[in-house]
Computed example of a mutant assay.
Amino acid sequence: MRYVKWGFLALIVLIVGSFLHYTLPQHDIVRVVGTYQERQDLGDWTRIFWSSPDDQSGTLVNRDVQFIQTVRANGDPMVYRNEDTGWGWPPYFKFDTASLQTEADDLRSSREAPVWAVVTHYGWRSELFSIFPNAIGIREVEGPDVTIIPWVNIILLVILLVIILTIRAMLRQFKERSIDPVLEDMGEAWDEVESRADAAGDEVRGVWGRFKGWLGTWKGKPRK
């Protein structure tokens, strides 16, 4: 049972960790090299990795999506989709797709004269399944070595930790006040039942012993 318990806890941690890693904002320092628009088919299971803004019908199987092409400081390419999130999940309430595309175009630069920018985004990049992170903000920075402190993530994770610890304390208090006394009463009741059963057994054995003794008194008597 110990392995089942730890396996279940590990699965819960993996699911929650993956959810937070996908949903929480991340920051990449990149150089913008281009933008484009392309029609995407959204009829398969990867639809869950694309936005569903309120102003677009959920029945659409394809639509035009804007993309931002970038290159990281180490030379690796990175492509972001640029979609509104609307009032849906994740709750970034992004409605400025056109403005963000304009800002990205304004930050274009060449390898010889690079202009570095930090792209705030959520989601994952998978070339195999054609999944792209969604850019939710972009701004110019001094260089590729600038330090970005993820204050939003820190605050949200601290709040989440406080909530988890509070719930844990409440559950422990509930267990101590409500469950443990019941279990203790049940244990005492069971001990009392066992004691009564042992006493009844002793009484039965005593009666049986006396009965056997009475029968033994008849064995030595002569017949008339």
Rank of each mutant, 00 (worst) to 15 (best):
125 R>Q: 08
90 P>G: 01
25 P>W: 05
153 N>P: 04
172 R>P: 03
200 A>I: 10
14 L>A: 04
154 I>V: 14
62 N>S: 15
105 D>M: 06
39 R>F: 06
184 E>S: 10
191 D>N: 13
176 E>L: 13
106 D>E: 06
192 E>A: 06
49 F>M: 10
35 T>A: 03
111 R>V: 08
116 W>S: 05
83 E>Q: 14
16 V>L: 08
219 K>M: 03
70 T>F: 09
124 W>K: 08
194 E>M: 11
14 L>Q: 01
127 E>H: 11
97 T>R: 15
39 R>P: 03
93 F>E: 00
139 R>A: 13
136 I>D: 02
98 A>Q: 12
109 S>K: 10
19 F>I: 08
144 P>M: 10
109 S>L: 09
98 A>G: 05
111 R>G: 07
16 V>I: 14
155 I>E: 07
154 I>E: 14
112 E>L: 04
140 E>C: 00
109 S>G: 10
221 K>Q: 12
202 D>E: 15
223 R>K: 13
60 L>M: 15
91 P>Y: 06
40 Q>C: 03
1 M>K: 11
202 D>H: 12
142 E>Y: 08
27 H>I: 02
138 I>P: 10
72 R>T: 04
54 D>Y: 03
35 T>I: 04
80 Y>C: 02
67 F>E: 02
189 A>E: 11
114 P>T: 00
73 A>I: 12
81 R>Q: 15
138 I>G: 01
63 R>N: 00
10 A>W: 00
199 A>S: 07
18 S>I: 02
39 R>H: 07
73 A>S: 15
160 L>C: 08
111 R>Q: 08
119 V>S: 01
167 I>Y: 02
111 R>Y: 05
121 H>R: 08
90 P>C: 01
215 L>N: 10
194 E>Q: 13
212 K>Y: 09
168 R>M: 05
85 T>Y: 06
179 I>M: 11
185 D>P: 00
139 R>D: 10
144 P>C: 09
70 T>W: 04
34 G>A: 13
58 G>L: 13
85 T>F: 05
80 Y>V: 04
129 F>W: 13
164 I>V: 14
179 I>P: 02
31 R>P: 07
212 K>D: 05
75 G>V: 03
44 D>A: 01
196 R>T: 03
5 K>H: 10
205 R>F: 15
8 F>N: 08
121 H>S: 15
135 A>Y: 07
70 T>V: 09
32 V>Y: 08
156 L>I: 08
190 W>V: 02
216 G>Q: 12
189 A>M: 11
193 V>N: 00
138 I>A: 07
155 I>V: 15
129 F>K: 11
146 V>S: 07
197 A>D: 13
116 W>V: 03
138 I>W: 02
212 K>E: 05
158 V>L: 14
